[in-house]
Computed example of a mutant assay.
Amino acid sequence: MPLHPEAKAVIDASDARGGLVPFGEDSPARMRAAFAESWQPSPHPEPVDSVVDRTIPGPAGEIPVRIYTPHGDGPFPALVWYHGGGWVIGSLDENDTTCRALCNAVGTIVVSVDYRLAPEHRYPAAAEDAYAALTWVASHGGEIGADGRIAVGGETAGGNLAAVVSLMARDHDGPPISLQLLATPVTAPPSDRPSYVDYGRGHFLDRASMEWFFEQYPRDPSDLDDPYLAPLAASHLGGLPPALVLTAEFDPLRDEGEEYAHRLLDAGVPVTLLRYEGQINGFFALLVDRLSISAEAHARAAAALRAAFAQEAIR
């Protein structure tokens, strides 16, 4: 279907700013500051019972997290959430609205993870922090009112980390994961898949940005063959948690996300794959104040999370 008018407005505004990634900045710190200035959280956030910023132990020091707790009597299940930004930019703030929405709609604690960023901290830093946060919630969840049921989720590079920690949990005997929520996930390096060819320029997230991200995160080209960086490189995908995979029609990452979903299905993993027609990358978490489809996607994800947590509760 045609590009949605709201998505076109986002593209036009991004083009006027010089693109999604502020390449004109001369340092990662300035680049992140410029990005953060463009993507402020809502001035009127959806209320939850509490929002607490704290740190948890990580493999290279303390990891900042933001913990959202829903109204009601706990304990609650937990969603460990990873923000996007190509492992280079982004913070807890840009996904605040989505974390609040899922917290309330599901009745779940959301632990949003501020993992280390490249190029100061190249692979496997982000993946190690992401897995450390998951294992901390599994072993210390009682401290924050969690009941032991855990899902993981994220958008773009955050979707990559959610897929990666699912692989790590399978390979390292846990913790068990109820659902992996993968919104427009990065599962492979830039390629000649049709979505990269058709939508790699002029559709908000572009090929140039993805190529630049893949210059910043890996240590060397051999890392691209590691499933903990590029999940499509995995030789087998059996034994992974159920997945909800959300893609956007006008997104360079569309085909690799859908390929990953089909490979999960082929390996016997329960998967729901939804393509959002007329939409662009960022529709689930980054662009919630610009794209009305975000609310529908949140409702779909919330239903999947509730079902997965309910399944765990009766086992």
Rank of each mutant, 00 (worst) to 15 (best):
L244P: 04
G238P: 04
E215H: 00
A297G: 09
L240V: 06
Q216A: 09
V245W: 07
V271K: 12
R300E: 12
P231D: 07
A243Y: 12
D266G: 03
E296A: 13
D251F: 09
S294D: 07
A285D: 13
A297W: 10
E256D: 08
D289S: 13
V269A: 07
P252G: 01
L240N: 06
L232E: 05
A243F: 12
E277Y: 11
A233Y: 01
D220Q: 10
H236W: 10
P218F: 02
D266I: 03
P231G: 08
P241D: 13
V271M: 12
Y217N: 03
A248H: 07
F214M: 14
L244F: 15
A267L: 08
R219L: 02
G239H: 09
P221M: 00
E259F: 00
L265I: 15
R300K: 10
G268E: 07
D226M: 06
D223S: 00
E296Q: 14
Y228R: 15
L274I: 15
A234R: 05
I293E: 10
A267K: 12
Q216E: 09
L286T: 13
P227D: 09
A299L: 11
P242I: 14
P218E: 01
S222E: 14
L224W: 03
A233F: 03
G239D: 11
L253R: 07
L265R: 15
N281M: 12
T247D: 06
H236N: 12
R254P: 03
L264Y: 03
A267E: 09
L265K: 15
E258Y: 02
A267D: 13
D226H: 03
R275P: 15
L244Y: 15
R254H: 06
L274V: 15
P227Y: 07
L240Y: 06
H298N: 05
A299C: 01
H262D: 13
E277W: 09
D255I: 00
E296T: 14
Q216I: 02
E215T: 02
N281Y: 13
S235P: 01
E256A: 04
H298V: 05
Y260V: 04
E296C: 04
D220T: 04
E296M: 07
L253Q: 09
A261E: 04
Q279N: 11
A299H: 10
V288S: 15
R290V: 00
P218V: 01
I293Q: 06
H262F: 08
G239N: 10
E277V: 10
T272W: 13
D223C: 02
P221T: 01
E277K: 10
E296N: 10
I280Q: 08
P221Y: 02
P221Q: 03
P227W: 07
Y260P: 06
L244G: 00
L232K: 05
Y260T: 06
A267F: 07
Y228C: 03
L274N: 08
A295W: 02
H298C: 05
G239I: 11
L240A: 04
R219N: 08
Y276Q: 12
L253K: 07
E258F: 00
R254I: 01
L265A: 14
F283K: 10
A299M: 05
L287G: 02
V245G: 01
G278L: 13
G278V: 12
Q279T: 12
A295Q: 11
